[in-house]
């Protein structure tokens, strides 16, 4: 069992845009690595830095949002490559929860494996949250995965998360290996029943 992830509190980073792909979250040249350690420094590298390594003017470089734990974005976040390096890079830069209009499936799956809640909100709510954070970077959010509500000040917002991912987080079953290993006998029966590859 893993740590139970039930409540997350923090400030947010507003990252506008739809279809932000995993190549943008972490360019392929930073995947020449044997572990996922230290990828945070490369998160959104080409979004943040120019060709000579100079910092671009971008919300991700703004001191107003440095170290914030909740990333807010648009539709189909994390599309493209299945690289788990992407959520690891986000985790490495301090992101503990993502709020977006929707997610690419493999990315959402990878987030779940890492214990990062990927919450989906309706378009009008995404727009409102982005605007709230842009207007006041210091605004606090609190996410309650049991009550399935997002709180900020006296405001409450609904979100969606596939029930299986939510249960995995709140029950501490997001690292799936141990759960899967409970069925080794059934797995062995399936292995014998299903065709093997004979050279």
């Amino acid at each position: 069992m893993n740590e139970k992830i039930i409540e997350i509190t923090g400030k947010a980073v507003p990252l506008r845009g739809d279809d932000i792909d995993t190549d943008r979250i972490i360019p392929a040249r930073f995947m020449k690595c044997l572990t996922f350690d230290g990828l945070g420094q490369f998160a959104f590298y080409d979004v943040k830095y120019g060709e000579k390594g100079e910092e671009k003017e971008h919300v991700l470089n703004s001191p107003d949002f440095k170290g914030h734990a909740i990333l807010i974005s648009g539709r189909n976040f994390g599309c493209g490559s299945s690289r788990e390096h992407a959520p690891w890079a986000l985790k490495g830069m301090g992101i503990r929860c993502i709020i977006a209009r929707s997610y690419a499936e493999i990315f959402a799956n990878n987030c779940s494996s890492l214990g990062i809640p990927a919450l989906a909100v309706d378009e009008n709510i995404a727009d409102e949250l982005l605007k709230m954070v842009e207007d006041d970077p210091a605004v606090d959010f609190s996410i309650d995965l049991l009550g399935k509500r997002l709180y900020s000040g006296n405001r409450t917002f609904p979100f969606h998360i596939p029930e299986n991912y939510r249960l995995a987080l709140v029950e501490g079953r997001w690292d799936t290996t141990s759960m899967l290993m409970e069925s080794l006998e059934d797995i062995e029966r399936a292995n014998k029943r299903l065709p093997a590859f004979i050279d």
């Binding site: 996922f36 799956n109 990878n110 494996s113 799936t176």
Partner: peptide
């Protein structure tokens, strides 16, 4: 298509 945690699984 899967991520690395699922490769582990």
């Amino acid at each position: 298509g899967i991520g690395t945690s699922q490769i582990r699984d």
